[in-house]
């Protein structure tokens, strides 16, 4: 992974130095090795702080909404899943394509530090991954973990490829894999109504309305969100009753339905670890079932499933779990 990081830093410095771009969007080193955070680099010196390691899970495309409005071009590093969000934002005229230089960067899956800590590993200093083995160097010695167990949830079912690139930095080919990303959703659908209600009631009751999911979601980037707008009738800052917990997540999932690229950021950032991706994936599974395979963000133009129709669409009364019952 270090070779890729070197190439990333080198390209970033070259682009910035040559003046081809006015700034570079990447990940900045945090206090530890496992907490890099998205950052804008505007000078070559700053780029020393640029990192690309096993914990760079953040999706950078959303930051380009504001940054692409600035003068001059912006270079950005996009993992395969980020490119779908990038395309979707171009389709919605939120990012100005000409002002962005997209560098497709290789990704073999990112790690989840909470899962590593949950395995009892602490005082982490460095991480190295070889094939399926994760070697975690800590103050108490080196631990070896099995990669699939500590991957970010969104990477467990990832079959994504780069959709857009002006340049690419791919040194290792990713082995193709066949994973059913709807397995969890199907499991929930198989439950009885009461079980499903209990499951979601328990999960959503944890929600503290910190809006992290909304603030990180590329599809959820309204200039003024309906929950912040008192005139909308459903504006609320806190879930003071059970209904608000459901209302917030149902409306948010509905607003991104047909536009969500399943990038998994919402689940990654939720402090209460609510499996929010299972909500959006339900809509994706239904849309695929009712109206045919559709992956948001594959193209940068055209209509989404909710702004198009066919004469023979399924009737709502019999439409359940992707089929007409």
């Amino acid at each position: 992974m270090k070779d890729v990081e070197l190439k990333v830093v080198e390209r970033a410095k070259a682009l910035l130095a040559s003046g081809e771009v006015a700034r570079v969007v990447g990940w900045k080193k945090g206090d530890f090795c496992f907490d890099p955070s998205p950052a804008v680099f505007e000078s070559v010196e700053e780029l020393d702080g640029l990192v690309y390691n096993w914990f760079c899970g953040a999706n950078l495309s959303k930051y380009l909404i504001e940054i692409s409005k600035k003068e001059g071009k912006t270079a950005v590093f996009l993992k395969p899943c980020d490119t779908y969000s990038f395309n979707q934002l171009i389709k919605e005229h939120r990012i100005n394509r000409e002002k962005v230089y997209a560098i497709a960067v290789e990704c073999l899956g990112k790690l989840d530090v909470e899962k590593i800590k949950a395995k009892g590993v602490s005082m982490i200093e460095d991480v190295e991954v070889v094939e399926k083995e994760v070697k975690v160097a800590t103050a108490y010695g080196t631990e070896t973990l099995h990669k699939p167990e500590v991957l970010l949830t969104k990477c467990e079912t990832c079959q994504k490829t780069h959709q857009v690139k002006d340049e690419e930095i791919i040194l290792h080919e990713r082995p193709a894999r066949d994973v059913d990303r709807f397995a969890e959703v199907a499991k929930l659908e198989a439950m009885t109504e009461d079980e499903r209600f209990a499951f979601w009631k328990e999960q959503l009751s944890k929600c503290i309305r910190c809006n992290a999911c909304r603030n990180v979601c590329p599809a959820c980037s309204c200039v003024k969100c309906v929950f912040d707008n008192p005139a909308s009738g459903i504006s609320a800052k806190a879930n003071d009753a059970e209904f608000e917990e459901q209302l917030f997540h149902i409306i948010r999932a509905f607003h991104v339905a047909g536009r969500c690229t399943d990038c998994g950021e919402c689940s990654r950032v939720c402090p209460q670890n609510i499996p929010l991706h299972l909500l959006n994936r339900k809509f994706i599974k239904d849309i695929d079932g009712f109206y045919g395979e559709y992956q948001a963000g594959e193209e940068a133009e055209g209509k989404t499933p909710l702004t198009s129709f066919t004469e023979g669409d399924v009737e709502p009364n019999d439409a359940v779990d992707g089929e007409a019952k």
Binding site: V185, L188, E189, E193, D194, E195, R196, F197, A198, F199, W200, K201, Q246, I250, A253, F254, A257, L279, K282, F283, D286, I287, F290, Y291, P305, L306, T307, F309, T310, E311, D313, V314, E315, P316, N317, A319, V320, D321, G322
Partner: peptide, 27 residues
């Protein structure tokens, strides 16, 4: 046509959240 798609998805989603499907209907 748009209503049909929106409600198909909404009703199926509410059912997924454990709300009895028969409470919502489109005719």
């Amino acid at each position: 046509y748009y209503t049909r798609r929106r409600m198909a998805l909404l009703y199926s989603f509410l059912n997924y959240m454990g709300i009895e499907k028969a409470r919502t209907r489109l005719e």
